[in-house]
């Protein structure tokens, strides 16, 4: 199996990174917060123009027909930028679900429109108020509702950029689809792309802390020159480096849809969330008292890491899935990329 990303995949990720670095600066994010903005229209327009919202849509639905392996680096870039807009949730999770049911649906025809998704594993629906449609789960069936057809109750998130809503609705009428497997796919994508965002934001936290450690001086030297600081950061970076390949391997194998691929996704979610937790706490520590202040961006990342840790399944849920795989077949290095039908 070739785990290297193609030049196209790397160039797409670079485009996403560059665009988000230019348009989701600290000052821009803070302006959004100060003005209670749900979305930065200029940034979202550029995201749409660049085709990022079309990545995971099949070509017959007007998309680029790319896969999770293509989108995973874009999700990492979104995590790195602490992107407030629901690019990952809409384009990476909800849109493929709707396209699998109704590729000609009008909502998919507008690349700027976002779709919110309410999976049973998440108590609240993110960005439901700004979405063109909500995909809602009930007894394995899929229902589509417009925001004005449901009652949305805003719930506070510890992440100031996450707009969470409790959705009150009635599953009346014909569902869009009764196939529960689609929700299983959505869960896999959700967990995978949350893991990718965790890997991205972990890297950002380390980068911010390293920059600070290079410039903040104590006893005549940058604090990064002291082992007590540099080893903290190195340990966090090692954890990120070990998490990223797990996330990438999970993305490549998601299409297997078996106990093995699901365990790899869960493994990715666990280790990426742990890396994000360690990296953000380390960044906080390296900044000293400054780290706790509103003026330093570390708290945005710390809060996002905490929020993503439980989104699309917390550690307990994902450990259960890894356990299910361990019970299903032998484990060991030679089974690292096992799949259903493989001889034990």
């Amino acid at each position: 199996m070739d785990f290297r990303f193609t030049e196209d995949q790397l160039m797409m990720a670079e485009t996403a990174r560059k665009l988000l670095a230019d348009t989701a600066t600290s000052a821009q994010l803070r302006t959004m917060l100060a003005n209670g903005m749900a979305r930065d229209d200029a940034r979202w327009t550029k995201i749409v123009e660049t085709g990022l919202t079309l990545t995971m849509l099949p070509e017959d639905a007007g998309g680029l027909g790319l896969t999770e392996a293509d989108f995973v680096l874009i999700a990492e870039a979104a995590g790195y930028a602490a992107l407030p807009e629901p690019l990952v949730e809409s384009a990476g999770i909800a849109a493929p679900l709707l396209a699998a049911i109704a590729p000609a649906h009008e909502v998919l025809g507008d690349p700027a429109a976002t779709i919110a998704i309410g999976h049973a594993i998440n108590p609240y629906v993110a960005d439901a108020d700004t979405a063109a449609a909500l995909l809602l789960h009930h007894d394995g069936a899929t229902y589509l509702r417009r925001p004005d057809e449901v009652r949305l109750i805003r719930e506070e998130s510890l992440d100031p950029f996450r707009r969470l809503f409790k959705v009150e609705w009635e599953p009346s009428g014909e569902p869009l689809s009764a196939a529960p497997d689609l929700w299983s796919d959505a869960l896999d994508r959700g967990a995978l792309f949350m893991a990718a965002q965790c890997a991205g934001l972990a890297q950002r936290a380390i980068d911010i802390a390293v920059d600070y450690a290079k410039t903040r001086e104590q006893f005549g030297k940058p604090i990064g020159a002291y082992q007590a600081v540099k080893h903290l950061l190195a340990t966090a970076q090692v954890q990120v480096e070990f998490a990223k390949p797990v996330v990438h391997a999970a993305a490549i194998g998601l299409a297997q849809r078996d106990v093995f691929s699901r365990a790899r996704i869960s493994h990715a979610k666990i280790v990426a969330a742990e890396a994000a937790d360690l990296a953000t706490r380390t960044a906080l520590q390296v900044h000293g008292a400054m780290g706790y202040s509103w003026e330093v961006d570390v708290h945005f990342l710390l809060k996002r890491a905490l929020a993503l840790n439980t989104a699309w399944g917390g550690p307990g849920f994902h450990r259960e899935r890894v356990l299910a795989r361990l019970r299903a077949a032998p484990a060991g290095p030679e089974y690292g990329f096992a799949h259903a039908g493989m001889e034990a």
């Binding site: 485009t15 550029k46 990545t55």
Partner: peptide, 12 residues
Amino acid sequence: RYASLPNIMKAR
């Protein structure tokens, strides 16, 4: 401009 994803694919 940012190279759009469709154009990245066409560039290949």
